[in-house]
Design a protein around this nucleic acid. Structure first.
Lengths: 200, 200
DNA sequence: GTCTATACTTCGATAGAC
DNA sequence: GTCTATCGAAGTATAGAC
């Protein structure tokens, strides 16, 4: 494992396909379904190529996580510069990578230390950025930060998105309508539509 | 798999040890670490005994889940008849089975249909019971159910407990103090200490 | 870069002695 | 009820031809 073997180019098309395929398998069937052969089949390439591009399966997992994390941070960045940042952010959080993949990685992290560290760093980074943005946002709305600290808003929204997405996978709906309504009321109060903003 | 082989008694001590060992391995290292040999070693019994007591590994997982679920429902029942039900319930929710094991099972459910159904049923049952109890509790406190529907309170507390416990595993603390304070304020408001209740 | 072939390990599951 | 022994399948990973 992890020998001095040379690896293929970072910008290879096949490498991209493997990362994409792994992501898909994780979302569809969970991390335990990710095997050399399964991923190669999904990507439509030869199984041996996995080891041409990645030293170990763990490296593949890490790369999938990094890609997803960066993509998510980028989506977050765009949300924060949108007309109504909180609304845009909520859309992103309830999307596919926002919660479903993250739960898979958290479960995976339970017995892979390298991955655990990477995930922890990402979540903290994600939350710090939101905290900074929310600080301005709430101040602009005249919200008292003792009633609603920015970091609290961040962790609450993240936790709500997570439970909604993951329970939806199980086919659970009980309480979801109420929670969604609550979130919409909350962010509408913190971020009323401006006169010249388009309707939703 | 799942042949007509006869299984050992349900009340066997060895069987209990296997269930307990599996639970522990899942909490410590995640469901992917659960193998015939690993579980047997943890329980201090011979690996072949796993198949004497369970038809398949999936059956073992299901039994672990059912045990944990029943134990949790029982703890919930006791909480609801405590002096301050919300406070007691919050304690239980942030305990070991409340969130950590549940996440493992949700991840496991991603590629095992039988388990998915069982988990969905359990969560709904759990939430329905809370909803019923909270309906009385909130009414007694004169809370308007339009502001705080009982099922919303249930799903919110569950989601908060989940994020706190699971992030704690990763060593994340950012926002946790604020969230904990928020929950304590929330449930203290809904459930003020009665004159003759002991101090906490 | 991509393929075939294969070494090595571990897993789930069973058979049968005790 | 518990043990040893083992089978077949599937996993990670590598070597080497093309």
């Amino acid at each position: 494992m992890a020998s001095a073997r040379k690896l293929g180019a970072q910008n290879s098309k096949t490498r991209d396909a493997l990362i994409k395929a792994t992501t898909q398998v994780m979302i569809d069937e969970g991390y335990a379904a990710v095997t050399t052969r399964r991923v190669a089949a999904e990507a439509g390439v030869n199984p041996a190529l996995v080891y041409y591009y990645f030293a170990t399966m763990d490296e593949l997992f890490l790369e999938v996580f990094r890609r997803g994390a960066e993509a998510n941070l980028e989506r977050q960045r765009q949300s924060l510069s949108a007309e109504r940042p909180l609304h845009a952010l909520w859309e992103v959080s309830t999307g596919p990578f926002g919660a479903k993949l993250l739960m898979e990685f958290m479960a995976l992290a339970n017995h892979r230390k390298d991955i655990r560290v990477e995930i922890a760093r990402y979540i903290e980074r994600f939350r710090e950025i939101q905290q900074a943005a929310f600080t301005f946002l709430l101040r602009a709305q005249g919200v008292n930060v003792d009633d609603m600290p920015p970091v609290l808003l961040s962790i609450m929204l993240g936790s709500f998105a997570s439970i909604l997405v993951n329970e939806q996978t199980l086919g659970i709906e009980l309480g979801h309508a109420e929670l969604t309504a609550f979130v919409e009321r909350l962010i509408a109060g913190l971020e009323p539509p401006t006169p010249n903003s388009e309707r939703t």
